[in-house]
Simulated scan of single mutants.
Amino acid sequence: MRVFGIAGHSGMGKTTLLEHLVPALQARGLVVSVIKHSHKDLDMDRPGKDSYRLRETGCQEVLLMGRRRWVLMHELSEDLEPPLAQLLDKLQACDLVLIEGFKQGDFPKLEVWRAALNKSPLWPTVPGVMTMASDDSTAPFGMPVIALADITRIANFIVEHAEMHNASLNP
Rank of each mutant, 00 (worst) to 15 (best):
T125L: 15
L96A: 09
V34P: 03
G8A: 05
E61V: 12
L54P: 03
F141H: 11
P171H: 05
R69G: 15
E111G: 14
P121S: 10
K119R: 15
I146N: 05
S51I: 01
R69S: 15
N166E: 05
F157K: 03
L76K: 13
Q26R: 15
K36D: 06
L72Y: 07
G101S: 09
L18K: 03
A167H: 09
E75G: 11
R2E: 08
Y52L: 00
A24F: 02
A115V: 08
Q60E: 15
W113T: 09
Q26W: 10
A139I: 04
M132V: 15
Q86V: 12
V97N: 05
Y52I: 00
A149D: 13
K109T: 02
S51P: 05
L110N: 05
A139C: 10
F157I: 08
R46I: 02
K103Y: 02
A116W: 01
R46L: 00
K119D: 09
R46T: 03
E78V: 03
S51A: 01
S38K: 08
P82H: 09
K49S: 04
F4C: 05
A27K: 14
K36Q: 13
D50R: 10
D43K: 06
K103H: 08
V31I: 14
D106Y: 05
K49R: 08
M73E: 04
M143A: 14
E111S: 12
L76P: 06
S33A: 12
D106P: 03
L42Q: 00
P83I: 03
L110F: 07
F141P: 11
G105N: 02
E56R: 08
M44Y: 08
A147L: 14
M65N: 04
A167C: 02
L148A: 09
R153E: 11
G105C: 00
I99R: 04
R69M: 14
C94E: 13
N156Q: 13
A115I: 07
V145P: 08
R69K: 15
A85N: 07
A133V: 15
F107V: 03
S168L: 10
N170H: 07
